[in-house]
């Protein structure tokens, strides 16, 4: 693994002639703050960065915290049990446990905070951003700032970001943005794409599938999935993610139109209530879902999406 990373780093360095001589990473030796990323000088090309391998996790208490963070990331239903209300994993959306470029890698997210977010209209610390994942994507309870769970996740992300430059645009952050679809998005075309390309893993009714009692393929809708406040509930986010990363191992095998359509289909299903619910779907849509990318509050197949109790769940309580 170490060698592989080194090769990747070196190749990256060669690609950027300006930085070729600055490649200073020496395998498993401590990096002494030597940047592993290669700043582009002449052009404003995004910076290519490779996170360190697990073998570089330091020994001692900090290393233990990093490892705990990685465990939470892979198995929140075990390591952050009291804060989650479904069997999704952080690594379902942040692939390769937060390492994979273009799959919302944690090394790129880490250095992007603190940041202003229009979602809540304030500057969010990284920990506050993590709280949002628990509240919405995990349909959970929010761990307090400074709680062990958040410190562990932050430590793991810090570790992955070690050597990444601050204030630079990192290649691979988030999901690559798709251009607008050529045709208006279509729920019914999306249903066909879903049946052909997604149902084998995620199940015909979006319920996901397990192996030996452990969820392997996450539920995409219904009571076991993310709630209406989650980022993946945005058709745009879901389309960006899907085009780049789905089906697993076959990135960009769907057309962009298929990605838009299937994201529309998935995000037009029932799911747990938005925890910010304001007493009516209309008011909640107006305040929190006032965008064409949210299906919340729209009527699809005769169902007004977003009504409480459509997909009954108890936030922060794991379903059996």
């Amino acid at each position: 693994m170490t060698n592989r990373t080194k090769v990747a780093v070196i190749i990256g360095g060669i690609g950027l002639a300006a930085a070729a001589t600055a490649v200073g990473w020496h395998g498993s030796q401590p990096s002494l703050g030597m940047p592993r990323a290669h700043a582009a000088t002449a052009t404003q090309k995004p910076v290519v960065f490779t996170p360190p391998p697990d073998s570089e996790i330091p020994k001692g208490k900090f290393g233990d915290m990093i490892k705990l963070g990685e465990n939470v990331f892979r198995h929140p239903d075990i390591y952050a049990k009291s804060y989650v209300g479904n069997h999704l994993r952080c690594s379902n959306c942040h692939l390769s446990a937060g390492r994979l470029a273009d799959a919302a890698p944690m090394w790129a997210a880490y250095s992007a905070y603190p940041a202003y977010r229009s979602k809540n209209g304030k500057v969010n610390s990284f920990e506050e951003r993590l709280q949002g994942c628990f509240r919405f994507s995990m349909n959970g309870k929010v761990p307090k700032l400074g709680s062990k769970t958040l410190i562990a996740l932050e430590s793991y992300s810090y570790f992955l970001a070690k050597g990444a430059p601050l204030g630079e645009k990192l290649a691979g952050r988030g999901y690559p943005k798709l251009p607008k679809p050529a045709l208006p998005v279509s729920y019914s075309r999306g249903a066909v794409v879903y049946a052909q390309h997604c149902a084998a893993c995620h199940g015909a009714t979006g319920q996901g599938q397990s192996s030996g009692g452990k969820v392997v393929f996450p539920a995409l809708w219904g009571p076991q999935s993310f709630n209406w406040g989650a980022g993946m509930g945005s058709v745009k986010n879901a389309a960006d993610f899907t085009y780049q990363n789905m089906p697993l191992g076959m990135p960009k095998s769907l057309t962009q139109q298929q990605a838009w359509d299937v994201a529309t289909y998935i995000d037009s299903q029932v799911r747990p209530e938005d925890p910010r619910y304001l007493g009516s779907v209309a008011a909640t849509r107006k305040k929190f879902h006032h965008t064409k990318f949210s299906m919340y509050g729209k009527t699809v197949n005769g169902v007004l999406l977003g009504q409480p109790d459509q997909a009954k769940s108890t936030p922060g309580v794991l379903p059996k």
Partner: peptide, 8 residues
């Protein structure tokens, strides 16, 4: 983990 560098 797969191979994050090659998206495996």
């Amino acid at each position: 983990n797969g191979l994050s560098q090659s998206a495996m």
